[in-house]
């Protein structure tokens, strides 16, 4: 068994596609209409084209809003992405107008930061020590 897909709920798939590809730099993998406006929309890391896909899932279900509001209020990220340098990535993303709820902090062995994906979620980036 292996993890080939994980998902985040997004307010607006078009906006999410733009943020996750143009700002974060992921690559679109699948884009299939699944009824109404909704799409089966996944992205992957350009460093790992066959790696785990991230599904940008419509947030239409009524349970999603209270769930995400509560997490965001406490600053809890919904996913974590690995970067080689949190500080550099923080500066790159801040330059592109991304808002961080937690600036880079060295927490013992790891450095982490948390940003708002503009689609309703907080995302953590982390660097493992070399």
């Amino acid at each position: 068994m292996k993890i080939h897909l994980t998902s985040v709920f997004v307010d607006d798939q078009t906006k999410a596609e733009r943020f996750y590809t143009e700002i974060l730099g992921f690559v679109k993998k699948h884009d299939v209409p699944v009824g109404g406006e909704d799409r089966w929309l996944t992205v992957v890391s350009p460093e790992e084209a066959e790696g785990t896909e991230l599904l940008l899932e419509p947030a239409g279900h009524p349970a999603v809003k209270p769930y995400r509001d509560a997490l965001v209020a406490d600053g809890i990220p919904i996913a974590q992405f690995a970067v080689t340098d949190v500080q550099a990535e923080y500066e790159r993303l801040t330059g592109l107008g991304v808002h961080f709820t937690q600036e880079p902090v060295e927490m013992g062995p790891v450095t982490t930061a948390v940003f708002d994906d503009t689609c309703g979620n907080l995302i953590q980036i982390a660097t493992q020590p070399k």
Binding site: D74, G75, I76, P77, T101, Q102, V105, M107, P109, V114
Partner: peptide, 24 residues
């Protein structure tokens, strides 16, 4: 060290920097 932290950041600092395994 830095004012203006979310609950998540405070929890992270306590567990990762200080090995204080406290519940949220």
């Amino acid at each position: 060290d830095r004012s203006g932290q979310t609950l998540f950041e405070i929890c992270g600092r306590l567990s990762m920097k200080h090995q204080l395994g406290l519940s949220r």
